[in-house]
């Protein structure tokens, strides 16, 4: 049975891992390749890098980070942030990444998802969706909850309904969705389970939950109630608040299939 994945996310700026709350107040958390290698040894099922500067002049730095990581962490590697074309995606894959995630670029140019899926296969195309709850009238029913897509690292609302965009992204070519709640990101108040459920119940591709992890129980809830196939977190792993092992143990105890940490050669 397909294991539910636990994925540490490394936000990278100028070749260093950084972390902030809601994309601001960034602090230095270490060397990306070193951290990725550590997580791979500790049982990470995949590593996600997000170049949060996403500046074209920083592309070489990101590719070098990917190369260094791919030579020491033998787990899948997803890279996002600032990839805007088929050729740029090709460069990232050639550096050793397995998938590329598109966020702002896909919203601006949805056909990019299709072009990249045609060239590299849907399995390599991840659509990252940053969503924020739309203001609701007082007393509105739960079913009317809506989420709006925001881009540029959470700074720009684009007037797109997140659920509709998720379905459209899959039709266009995304093989996976990385769904981040911007209301929860960095707050350690748990994943937005309703958002996850609203998306995972409408698409057939894997959904990665992101934004708000505070402890192992949140991972269980994201999968069990949110329907997520994978759960992503940053700060609780970087700061060693919880180990990947402790998260997986909680998931296994809840009856969720996970790849056991330290599953090595017998």
């Amino acid at each position: 049975m397909l294991a539910r994945r636990v994925i540490p996310c490394l936000d990278v700026a100028n070749g260093r891992v950084v972390k902030g709350t809601r994309f601001v107040d960034l602090t230095d958390e270490g060397d990306p390749a070193e951290l990725a290698g550590r997580y791979a040894r500790e049982g990470a099922d995949e590593i996600v890098f997000v170049d949060i500067t996403a500046a074209p002049e920083g592309r070489g730095t990101t590719l070098e980070v990917v190369r260094r990581t791919a030579s020491r962490a033998f787990v899948p590697l997803t890279v996002g942030g600032g990839v805007r074309s088929v050729d740029e995606m090709r460069d990232v894959l050639r550096a050793g990444a397995d998938k590329v995630s598109f966020n702002t670029a896909a919203v601006a140019e949805p056909r990019l998802l299709t072009a990249c899926a045609r060239r590299f296969g849907r399995q390599a195309v991840v659509c990252a969706i940053d969503a924020r709850r739309s203001p609701q009238p007082a007393g509105a029913a739960l079913e009317t909850t809506a989420w709006e897509v925001v881009t540029h690292g959470g700074r720009t609302p684009v007037g797109l309904d997140a659920i509709e965009w998720a379905q459209r992204a899959v039709e266009l070519g995304a093989g996976e969705l990385l769904v981040t709640s911007m209301d929860r990101d960095g707050t350690r108040s748990g994943f937005d389970t309703e958002l996850l459920r609203a998306i995972s119940s409408r698409v057939r591709v894997p959904v990665i939950a992101s934004g708000g992890a505070s402890g192992p129980e949140d991972f269980v809830v994201a999968v069990r109630d949110g329907g997520a196939d994978a759960v992503l977190a940053a700060s609780i792993f970087h700061r060693r608040v919880y180990s990947i092992d402790s998260v997986k143990q909680a998931m296994a105890a809840a009856g969720l299939p996970v790849r056991p940490v330290g599953q090595a050669a017998a």
Binding site: M1, L2, A3, R5, D45, R204, P206, R259
Partner: peptide
């Protein structure tokens, strides 16, 4: 298949 592509760790 419940999801496609089949992406991830399986036994």
């Amino acid at each position: 298949a419940p999801t496609l592509p089949h992406i991830g760790w399986n036994s």
